[in-house]
Amino acid sequence: MVNSNTYFEVLKWASSFLEKNNIETYVAEYLLLEKKQWTKTELLLHFKEEMPKEEQHQFKKDLEKISHHIPVQYIIGSCEFYGRRFLVNEQTLIPRPETEELVDLILKENSDSEKKVVDIGTGTGIIAISLKADKPNWQVTGLDISKEALEVAKANSKELNVSVSFLESDILSGLDSLEKIDILVSNPPYISYDEWEEMDVSVREFEPKQALFAEDEGLAIYKKIANEAREHLSETGKIYLEIGYLQGNAVSTIFQKSFPNKEISVVKDMNGQDRIIKVI
């Protein structure tokens, strides 16, 4: 594999290998740190130590998978989100930093008092679990149409010892018609099928398409949420939605029609892009 077996030399080789395969080189270090559960400081302290042969062999196998565009998070089997570690697999989307901003906004804008919270398209359960972990008085339910994704969400809830209810449901159809929601949140599929070619190969080939793409130029799920939420949102209820950076005006219009008496606003992410729609 390499002439020297130190962590430094193995990592140097790995970065070169990824570069030749047009993969960003930082992934090699990220993989090693995650596998070893080391900080960067700990890695520096071990740089001159030999990496065991079995470890080298597995590291190379993992890099081969990455060179074929399998996301590193699926290889590791977990990733960090809002200060907690969540299980992920190919049945679930890999959490993005922008979704942390969605969680943060909801937590900052709402009190600790008891609330009924529903997360549509919960996937790994990251939003629902993160909200419940920080607001124990909230009654949080995660909904998803995918049985496989719900199994991952339930495993995360158990692993993190956070009590969240999970229910198989297409949008809000699985809820009791009398159930009223105080906070409705969703990071739904919002990518247009026209954008297929623009997506990263690893996303196109390995992340679940059902959780990424939507009909009607990516707006189909927002329209369903806006329609079904009218029956379930409490009088003072709020809606928080993650959106694509070009969808601010379109999604605002959809929800203004469904909720003419509520205030609709667009919140930008850390990069200055439209990212969240608020209905309050």
Rank of each mutant, 00 (worst) to 15 (best):
D274E: 12
V88M: 09
Q273P: 04
L102K: 06
Y7G: 07
Y30M: 09
A214K: 00
V118N: 02
K61S: 13
P52G: 03
Q210G: 07
K40P: 06
V140D: 09
E195S: 14
I191F: 01
E49Q: 15
S234E: 14
I277R: 10
H232Q: 02
E228V: 02
L33N: 09
V103Q: 03
S202E: 13
F166R: 07
G142K: 04
I145V: 13
S157C: 10
P97E: 08
P189R: 08
E179R: 08
N89A: 07
L233Q: 08
E148G: 10
A28W: 03
P71S: 01
K60Q: 11
V164F: 11
E90S: 15
T41I: 13
K132Y: 13
W38R: 05
E148D: 15
E50K: 15
D216K: 09
D216L: 02
I239A: 01
D134E: 15
E24P: 02
I181Q: 10
D194F: 12
E64L: 04
I76S: 13
I129R: 01
V201P: 11
L43N: 03
Q139E: 13
Y193T: 13
K65P: 00
I221A: 08
K262W: 09
L160W: 00
V267W: 13
I276G: 10
S173N: 15
W13V: 03
K53R: 07
E217A: 08
V2E: 15
V88Y: 01
E24A: 12
I276S: 10
F259E: 00
F17E: 02
N187T: 04
G237Y: 09
I23A: 08
S130A: 04
Y190D: 04
E9Y: 14
S192L: 01
Y193R: 08
E263W: 05
K36R: 15
S67V: 05
K116G: 08
S146A: 10
E235Y: 11
N156G: 07
I120W: 04
I23S: 05
A229P: 04
L11G: 05
N137V: 09
I120S: 02
Y26E: 11
Y82M: 00
M1V: 12
A128T: 03
F259H: 00
L93S: 00
K65T: 03
K35C: 08
F86D: 11
P189Y: 03
P97F: 11
D269R: 01
T41C: 02
L45E: 07
L87H: 12
G237Q: 11
R85A: 12
E215L: 12
V140C: 10
V103R: 07
I94V: 14
D200T: 07
K154I: 12
A149V: 04
L107A: 02
G142E: 07
N261Y: 09
G272M: 05
T124H: 13
L18E: 10
N89D: 14
F59K: 05
L219P: 05
I129C: 03
W138Y: 00
I277F: 11
I76H: 09
L44C: 06
I181N: 10
S169V: 11
